[in-house]
């Protein structure tokens, strides 16, 4: 209690104490669905202002991890979930984390601005005020002049930026991005990655970012978590100490290549495991 009060008094300017206390902490988190164990004793911490990326073979429980952190799914009893220094249930995180799912999931009957303010509206911010706030943000998201367009009039990249703006406007300590650029073509994706880093550096949010793409994970993250094959846990935690701001050509730097080799090796091992267990299941069934 005393410690909690002290951190509050030091204010939002990131002091040493603040940095020392992780924003989100998962200890021995397990989640089973009937027979299937999706996550097994997963440990992870995320510090304030950190950009953490998660990679892993398909079906490794990444989405389950996200759903737990977003408050949509309750982990099995026994694990510990701590947010902002307090132990909590997953359900307590509903409305506390700004979550961006894989697809943009824009509502087709709302124009760009009204889609962007959806979360604010749910929160109870008056519509006019929320709209004004969104309008100020439009240029930064490359959407100036598009405020009255509807989703079907936008390109894939623009739709994704509207969804990101919706996530950014919902100002929460932690942003969860679930493969936000997975559906985009390679060029648009590269552009969006650089743009996301710019915006992140300006607003200094804490981001947990799921991806399939090792390059993306290294390029964006301060730290990369590699997940094991199902049941999922953290196999490897790799700090990315590449300088920021990161230029696009950094992907050819020797240090980048070295990190990529380490990560690919770890993922490869897990992919083989999950492939083998799938084949075994096929043979036995």
């Amino acid at each position: 209690m005393q410690a909690g009060l002290q951190t509050k008094e030091t204010g939002p300017v990131g002091s040493l104490e603040d940095a020392a206390e992780p924003l989100l902490e998962l200890r021995a988190v397990t989640k089973t669905f009937g027979e299937v164990t999706a996550l097994a004793r997963l440990d992870a911490t995320i510090a304030r202002g950190e950009f953490v990326t998660v990679v892993g073979p398909s079906g490794c429980g990444k989405s389950t991890l996200f759903n737990i952190v977003a408050g949509l799914e309750e982990p099995d009893t026994g694990g510990v979930l701590r947010f902002e220094g307090r132990s909590c249930h997953a359900a307590d995180l509903l409305g506390q984390v700004s979550f961006m799912p894989q697809r943009d999931l824009l509502l087709p009957w709302r124009n760009v601005v009204d889609n962007a303010i959806l979360a604010l509206e749910v929160e109870g911010v008056p519509r006019q005020q929320a709209r004004a706030q969104a309008l100020r943000m439009l240029p930064e998201f490359g959407l100036a002049g598009f405020e009255n367009q509807y989703p079907h009039q936008l390109s894939g990249g623009m739709r994704q930026r509207v969804a990101l703006m919706r996530t950014f406007l919902f100002e929460r300590g932690l942003m969860l991005l679930d493969e936000p650029f997975g559906a985009l073509d390679a060029l648009t994706r590269a552009m969006m990655q650089r743009w996301l880093l710019d915006v992140w550096q300006k607003y200094r949010r804490t981001i947990l970012f799921i991806t399939h793409d090792v390059d993306e994970a290294i390029f964006l993250g301060d730290r990369v978590l590699v997940m094991t094959a199902r049941p999922g846990s953290v196999k490897l935690e790799q700090v990315v100490d590449l300088p920021r701001p990161r230029r696009p050509e950094i992907v050819t730097a020797p240090e980048f290549i070295r990190l990529k080799r380490i990560l690919l090796e770890a993922i490869e091992e897990e992919s083989i495991k999950s492939f083998q267990s799938a084949t075994v299941r096929e043979q036995t069934s």
Binding site: L105, L107, L118
Partner: peptide
């Protein structure tokens, strides 16, 4: 997935109905 997203924003059942399900 849209329901999950709205819930993660903290939407109540009424907000879910009026802002997502009915439209």
């Amino acid at each position: 997935r849209q329901v999950a997203m709205m819930r993660s924003f903290g939407a109540s059942r009424r907000q879910l109905l009026l802002r997502l399900q009915l439209p």
